[in-house]
Design a protein around this nucleic acid. Structure first.
Lengths: 222, 222
DNA sequence: TCATTCCTGACGGGTTCCATACGGCCCCGC
DNA sequence: GCGGGGCCGTATGGAACCCGTCAGGAATGA
């Protein structure tokens, strides 16, 4: 069952979306403002977020950044503003789709299907992974032993662990964790990779699982 | 480098998209009708398809179905028709996004980034090739055994493997890897071909898969 | 205030790439 | 048969780049 978090401050739209999604057998949670959205997303870890940009408390793009700080949940943005700037900003912040109001409910549902179709695959399985002596639990966000990871560390680690054995380019990591504009800031990555290794690898100087591929990116090998 | 296949029968749009994408360092291929699109997609296995629905020969949705028959390449649909029915049909056929004309080029580029951000990581187009005793996996960027390849080695090898059995000219390799200005520097190629052979061929002195065609170029034979 | 996390700059060491040189093979004309 | 010129494969040294690490400061929240 796909769990959807709807974030909107207009009760009518909220209600219409809720009814239609429940009718299609989605599990629905709702939030009326940005901070509630961030809290509930962290709490419930939904499979999809439908986010209205016109929120009373926070700027919509900040909510996207907030979510992207630790999660790669798919986000569909709703907005009354049809300007190019707004769209580009939201999409580059990490949104997966941008729908302009007014919209047909059929279109939105089709876009929900399109976005989840892509991501369901990748969300699959992988509850916990062994790295060296540590067990990393992705759903609980816990590591065995006395290891604690920061939000950014989790975010990076999740991307790597969800692609076991595959090369993940620096560009991909940087855009997903920090955003499109940070593709040049490779020293962010270097910083956090050393931290992750010191927390997880048996011998951080000679990593066995979090591998560097010079000039390309990083790879998690189980 | 992300390779994009643009399918559109209007030369102006084709040209505008091509210029803008190339300026953003995408590799661009174009097709003017549906059957050419399917052929070129099968041939070049692009990383993204931008598909205009108003094609002269085939119905756009049929092109989507045709692609989805064997590929999970992301598809962004362009269309002059803004009806809900059209959108739902295209998205449910397998399109990842649906953009209505007229659209801003900035928006389209942002959507391109959004879609590829998702799919570059997770699409599993099983692309692995056997060379001698080694299995080469192009999506994971791995080679069986304790073989590791550098970025430039991967770049060259990818071009050759993408054209199995075909002759690839030195000019093509040099321009794709080093750039237009380096077509004369054939010793770069010689250098890297030996390295690749030493890493992959069973008997590097008598290559069986990475073949030299004197005066012309190189060829990968499976 | 303190603690945590994130950002930023700097530096040493290692890898990768560039550049040059040299030897072998083949084809060709003499 | 002989020599020369392409063309190709291989070796090697140095330059450029990339990466890991340390340290300190800014921002945030308790």
């Amino acid at each position: 069952m796909t769990r959807v978090l709807i974030v909107d401050d207009e009760p009518q739209i909220l209600r219409a979306l809720r009814i239609n999604l429940i009718a299609r057998r989605y599990e629905v949670e709702t939030a009326a403002d940005g901070s509630a959205a961030l809290r509930q997303a962290a709490d419930g870890s939904p499979d999809l977020v439908i986010l209205d940009l016109g929120l009373p408390d926070l700027d919509g793009v900040d909510v996207i950044h907030g979510l992207r700080g630790w999660s790669s949940v798919p986000i569909i943005v709703l907005s009354g503003r049809a300007g190019n700037r707004d769209k580009v900003e939201a999409l580059d912040a990490g949104a997966d789709d941008y729908v302009t109001k007014p919209f047909g409910i059929d279109e939105l549902l089709a876009r929900v299907r399109a976005v989840t179709r892509r991501t369901v695959l990748y969300q699959a399985q992988l509850a916990s992974v062994q790295i060296g002596e540590h067990m990393v639990d992705l759903t609980d966000k816990t590591v065995s032993g006395k290891v604690r990871l920061t939000p950014t560390e989790w975010h990076i680690l999740e991307i790597l662990l969800r692609n076991p054995g595959k090369l993940v380019s620096q560009r991909q990591l940087l855009t997903e964790v920090w955003g499109e504009r940070y593709v040049k800031e490779t020293h962010y990555l270097r910083q956090y990779m050393t931290q992750l290794r010191h927390k997880l690898e048996p011998d951080p100087a000679h990593p066995a699982h979090l591998i560097t591929e010079p000039g390309m990116g990083y790879r998690f090998t189980p």
